[in-house]
Design a protein around this nucleic acid. Structure first.
Lengths: 267, 267
DNA sequence: AACTGTGAAGCGTTTCACAGCT
DNA sequence: AGCTGTGAAACGCTTCACAGTT
């Protein structure tokens, strides 16, 4: 079974092959990015905020300021940035453009990644038109669907291919990232075709657990799961309010306090 | 600053009130969900798989079998299930329907949650039509957009309201979960309106860090971030292949091995 | 004086391994 | 014999706190 991770879990990046002693493993890891997975996700967030700041003409920023802008605690933020190198100036802060460049380099955004989107429903349309990625990008190189009526119809300025051609087209265009936005049923077949076409990274929106070889990386985004997690928090909150016999006052919605950081409601 | 979590971080569930001795805490914790956040996310995954199995007539399942179906290691899986109670039978396994029921109860899916979707672009359309949530659901109760041309036009069988009416309509319909699928610019205002309308849980697709009061829970799904994380892994992999001077053989796509669990490609 | 960079402590999650039940 | 449920160890991530630099 291969590495497969939902949005939202800590996990092992599984670097060392089985049979390697722990002592040697750290040596084998020579240049391998020793950046915690959790930090990688946040670097992407910093990048977006920093790109915006750069566009607005901001040139210097402290970890505290960036902390406010990103919602990430400043100690964590500094540690995250330290993983990619020492690009700050003590007593001053970070140079915004330097940071943008270094994060882009770390995330591998200096090379172009061709993206294929499979499943041109509403979600696929949304993805196909998602041109506005922050700083540089992920050109969508190919679109696929099963529906013959869609063939040739340009979506976001691109023709739609049939899913049967996934392998050939992906290989030709050297697609590096595949996005699966199909219904659950077709997802595994699509996944297989993408892998056969040379795709090694997949973003999966279909509510299925994809089976892939070990060398393929899958990330999953599951809307139902996200809603259910929120549901859990609604329920937990309701329980707490019952337990603590707070008579009334905060059961009713409280108007006028939104968006003011620091407003604390009694619990 | 309030609780706000990307898909992908651990954090504190913050159960016991301060000033309670550890011994009493477990008593106080009576009903309070002491379930690790990471486990909650996985429970939602188990639920989907189990619902499918139930529909297929499967009545019993072992942790090992469920492990294969969900891609979650069986020890972790058993521990996760133990958080919601002891519903397995030693020597036998779990009753599928019992598990479905207990997970639904734990996730708070026995109550209905009204969902409001704001921003009826491609993504909003996709969400509005996302009726097919696994086992029961999240009825979408209201749609909102800024575009006057959309007002009254039914989307997924529902009329679209103007964003100016978010507060009123959400309060009237007792919306518990708000989904923000607008462009970045409008998102914070929309968020404020939702909170004023009594919404306490928000799923945010807009690429901004929302500012909310402490009592509001935000989850964020950021497509660009997901792609960038994948990009990082592409880059890391490329580095590794350079490092380890593997001459050739596995640089070219390898056909015909997809979807077979257990197939291991030499690295 | 201000702010970064980082060891070390703290904490939550995962994994191990086995006792306990059927 | 088989499988669950769970303490305890291992691991990774976060937070603390401060030495180091400008």
């Amino acid at each position: 079974m291969a590495a497969q991770r939902d949005a939202g879990d800590g996990f092992t990046t599984d670097t060392a092959a089985p049979g390697v002693t722990p002592v040697e493993a750290s040596v084998v890891r020579e240049r391998a990015r020793a950046i915690p997975e959790a930090a990688v996700a946040r670097l992407a967030v910093y990048l977006r905020v920093l790109s915006d700041l750069s566009r607005d003409g901001v040139t210097k920023i402290s970890s505290e300021e960036l902390s406010v802008a990103t919602g990430v605690n400043s100690a964590k933020l500094r540690k995250d940035l330290s993983y990619i190198g020492s690009y700050g100036t003590r007593g001053v802060g970070y140079d915004v453009d330097v940071l943008v460049g270094q994060i882009e380099r770390t995330l591998g955004l200096t090379r172009q990644h061709s993206v294929a989107v499979v499943g041109i429903g509403n979600l696929g349309h949304a993805l196909a038109n998602y041109g506005g990625f922050p700083g540089r990008g992920f050109p969508v190189a190919a679109l696929f669907d099963v529906d013959p009526d869609l063939m040739g119809v340009p979506v976001g300025g691109m023709p739609v291919h049939h899913v049967n051609d996934i392998r050939r087209v992906c290989a030709e265009l050297e697609v590096t990232i595949g996005v699966i936005a199909t219904p659950a049923q077709g997802a595994q077949n699509v996944c297989d075709s993408l892998v056969q076409g040379g795709v090694r990274c997949i973003l999966n929106f279909a509510p299925v657990v994809l089976q892939v070889p070990d060398y393929v990386e899958v990330r999953k985004v599951d809307l139902a799961v996200e809603l259910q997690i929120l549901s859990f928090h609604v329920a937990r909150r309701a329980d707490q309010e019952q337990d603590a016999a707070f008579s009334s006052a905060h059961a009713a919605p409280q108007p006028g306090v939104a968006s003011v950081p620091g407003v604390v409601i009694p619990r």
